[in-house]
Design a protein around this nucleic acid. Sequence first.
DNA 1: ACCTGAACACCGTTCAAGT
DNA 2: ACCTGAACACCGTTCAAGT
Lengths: 238, 238
Amino acid sequence: MTPRPEAAPRAPLSRDRVLSAAVELADGIGIEALSMRRLAQELGVVPMALYKHVANKEQLLDGMVEAVVSEIDPPARGSDWQGAVRRRILSARAALLGHPWAAQVIRSRSGPTPAVLAYLDSVIGMLRAGGLSVDLTHHAMHALGGRVLGFTQEVFDAAPDPDPAAPAAMPAEAAAAYPHVAELAMAAAHDGDSVVGGGCDDQFEFEFALDLLLDGFERLRRQGWSSGARRAGDGLIA
Amino acid sequence: MTPRPEAAPRAPLSRDRVLSAAVELADGIGIEALSMRRLAQELGVVPMALYKHVANKEQLLDGMVEAVVSEIDPPARGSDWQGAVRRRILSARAALLGHPWAAQVIRSRSGPTPAVLAYLDSVIGMLRAGGLSVDLTHHAMHALGGRVLGFTQEVFDAAPDPDPAAPAAMPAEAAAAYPHVAELAMAAAHDGDSVVGGGCDDQFEFEFALDLLLDGFERLRRQGWSSGARRAGDGLIA
DNA sequence: ACCTGAACACCGTTCAAGT
DNA sequence: ACCTGAACACCGTTCAAGT
């Protein structure tokens, strides 16, 4: 038999080629139809060949998340903290809008991948630079929830902390790479909480965000706000 | 062969028995491990027997959502609108906390089930009764996102509107059963949008919620707020 | 008419056999 | 040493054969 007549000789497989093919395929046929077998077929390769480049499907999904998150624009500089944070979050939203499956997959990961951590770190850094205390920054990040990644969803599915007794368990290298994340984790640790692990007071975080929104609605109601103004914040702060 | 020695003669299968067994099984082994075959085994029944009571797995999941949502406390009466809405949303959160898979499954449904619609209708009614305009109520519901169902997540995954040209396409019976939902859908329709379908201006809704939160953070920052107060809204409104 | 075993077209992944 | 076909233990669902 001649080797596969219709297919041009494919470039050799690589992790990058596998990941970008997976992203493109998920964009095209949807995340629920993406399978190792279907992806292999798309690459003109036997299914088992993929396992040379990703350990399993979980790691494939991790890699796809990294690919999408690295499309987010780097932070712009200048202007007030609210404008800077606003631009960065809207840029994340724009990046994820091109991949409708991405928010769901990010949420389904058990923890943040490095690119996600780096992005969160930069947003935290912007809030801190704007003068928000560590405490307020912590709760603000929870309130933003998945908005911080461009979507109206919590960033990660609730997963039981694998080791709740662990103190500020962030390894030194990670703390160096993500200093703002580390600062929050450290501060939360003396409550037995961890901003990275699942140890926060979820009920408090939930009510914090809920009350911010309810108070905002009440303020807009008193002002007779209507969406003609096209900006919720307009006129809110004297 | 004697018929299945260990199992007591099972009560005859019914839709309710199938659904509550599915909820219990998902609570126990996780939603990703819940399969038609596993559920059948749990009920001491051949897999195909389930298909007498649910058309397919999608309809099984719909039924599971209905079961969980019907656990939400009915609305309490009295007190200000913020307190009433707050209590109802926290009750929804409490109901869903007992079923960690529920938020994810609700989001994965293509549209709201009747119990979900009824719940949303009641929350909308509370906001309207509190004096919020139809317009503000509409955006408030989007801003609350999945909080309205007890979790920090958009209620439904973005799905392309099957018929974007449809006008306020809510059937008369549905409009009668869910009058507050109908009011919002009607108001949004003249923009070519539908609060039920996917036709809203997502970008506006996203920025509306984002700006409410950012303004809230800024207000707290100016006040030197710290979480010792344990309530984000404390002192926000004069 | 009702129920159900076998079959179909899939999965992700292991493993042993081929080169 | 590398690659890969076959196999394993699953899926949801169809369908025809049994009662």
